[in-house]
């Protein structure tokens, strides 16, 4: 009798951990999406970081959409349709944002090229002197 109660207790415990795990998949997705969506009224904060009222609303909406079995891409699209690309923390790659994505790399390469040339010329000058 005692053993049976213990066993059923263990079964209950196990069942509850399983369901908690199943729930946490949605939670993990929600947390990831919170970090990807910008709080549009805050300066450079995601809705995970912000406690603005609008960010709270947006977090609740993400959870609602997850519970509605929408995919991550569908949820992102849901917000982009209503708030525009600015709602994404990572701006999408498209002709308008090429300067944003490749600009820093180009400037870095240009700087490296100029530095390299200056150094090479300095070395050549030294060699000419000696």
């Amino acid at each position: 009798m005692m053993r049976r109660t213990l066993l059923s207790l263990f079964a209950l415990l196990f069942a509850s951990t399983v369901s908690a795990h199943a729930q946490s998949i949605g939670e993990v997705r929600a947390k990831a999406l919170f970090n990807e969506l910008r709080c549009v009224v805050c300066a450079g904060q995601s809705i995970a970081e912000s406690n603005a009222e609008l960010a709270q609303d947006m977090r609740e909406q993400v959870v609602l959409l997850i519970n509605d079995n929408r995919s991550d891409a569908e949820i992102r699209d849901w917000f982009v349709q209503r708030y525009g690309d600015a709602v994404l923390m990572n701006p999408p790659l498209k002709p308008l944002t090429f300067a944003l994505w490749f600009g820093p790399v180009l400037i870095f390469l240009f700087g490296m090229a100029v530095t390299g040339l200056v150094l090479l010329r300095g070395r050549a000058r030294l060699r000419n002197k000696s």
């Binding site: 009224v41 609008l54 947006m58 609740e60 209503r82």
Partner: peptide
């Protein structure tokens, strides 16, 4: 209620 329309309209404030 629930800011449903606010989010649907892309409200910022």
């Amino acid at each position: 209620t629930g800011s449903t329309n606010a989010l649907n309209f892309g409200l910022t404030g």
